[in-house]
Amino acid sequence: MHLARIPRRRYTAGSTPIEFLPHLTEHLAGPNIYIKRDDLLGLSAGGNKTRKLEFVMADALAQGADTIITTGAVQSNHCRLTLSAAVREGLKCRLLIEERVEDSYDREASGNNLLFRLLGVEQLQVVPGGTDLMAGMQKMANQVTSDGGKPYIVPGGASNPLGALGYVSCAQEILAQSFEMSLRVDHVVCASGSGGTHAGLVAGFYGNQSGIPVTGISVRAKKAPQEAKLHELANATSRLAGAEREVPTGAFTVIDDYVGPGYSLPTTEMTAAIQTFARLEGILLDPVYTGKTAAGLIGLAQQGYFPADSNVLFIHTGGSPALYAYPDAVLAEAQG
């Protein structure tokens, strides 16, 4: 795989750290838990979408865009970071917000919604859950064009093959870091949502013949359709990266036991996981993605999914600004 030939912007200086979590490891009585701190990536408050946007924004600039259009949920980390990248590049940004949970949008809400306004979003349109989002973004793009602008549409999560290259790059970064640290990474756990992070990691590890398995904790979709989507995306990403072989279907593992009643809806396991990471390691997670992913990591460890002496790397994909929009959920009484 050869990424250097693909245009890329850089929004983060150097690599994000890999840290050992001794208190969580002791709490679980093994395995050894490490964390990849992609919450420390560049742009406003960081998070995994920053890696994807490095490739996507380079393409937007190459095409002469002056307005970025994207979509996401009410407290979308992706929308926050896409808007931030647009600001960094001197571009305008319009957001199509999908109200996946009925009546969940509040213009005065804190969290990412506050940051949309602070960062100066040019237009924010809210649509009901289930709306054809690509058609909605195309309509916004047509308006930009009619006004004499040059729009560029970024799909939800920046989870297309170009965006997923960000996590091919992350896989390569992890391999280099683990070599320097003399750390044998036996398993990687990440959130599995729009799919770019999960698919990119699998493509990157497989393309570099690392043999490292990746388990994705679904935050929305059922196991079978999510794995099928990831397989298609990972292979499209691999081809773009210049890989010589396809990723087999067996390389994808999705656990859908921690979604709860639905996307962004709280679960007791999520609340417990957020409190555990905060109170044992001083690390902030978010209720929508990393909280449920951490719940999956903890649950799987307690079930013996990982050998007790293995080294498990948790990918922290960011999202902590959303904490401030869900105070009741993250401070609820929970056992864990």
Rank of each mutant, 00 (worst) to 15 (best):
A4M: 05
R5I: 14
R9T: 01
G14F: 06
E19V: 08
P22C: 02
H27P: 00
H27D: 06
H27R: 15
L28E: 02
P31I: 09
Y34I: 04
D39H: 09
A45R: 15
K49H: 11
T50W: 08
F55K: 07
V56G: 01
T71D: 02
T71W: 01
G72I: 11
H78W: 11
C79L: 15
L81R: 11
A85D: 06
E89Y: 07
L95E: 09
R100P: 00
Y105T: 05
N112Y: 11
L114S: 04
G120N: 12
Q123S: 12
L124E: 13
M134S: 05
A135V: 03
G136L: 13
N142G: 14
G148Q: 14
G149C: 10
K150G: 00
G157V: 10
N160Q: 04
L162S: 06
L165W: 02
Q172G: 15
E173Q: 13
I174K: 02
L175T: 11
V185Y: 02
H187P: 01
V189W: 09
C190L: 09
A191D: 06
G195F: 06
T197I: 08
A199Q: 09
G207R: 02
S210L: 05
G216S: 12
A221P: 00
H231W: 15
T237C: 10
S238C: 13
R239G: 13
L240M: 10
G242Y: 08
E244K: 15
G250C: 10
I255P: 00
G260I: 02
Y263A: 08
S264C: 12
S264G: 02
P266R: 09
Q275C: 07
E281H: 09
Y289M: 10
K292P: 02
T293F: 01
G299E: 07
L300F: 12
F306M: 07
P307K: 10
F314S: 07
G318C: 12
S320H: 07
P321I: 11
P321E: 12
Y324I: 00
E333Y: 04
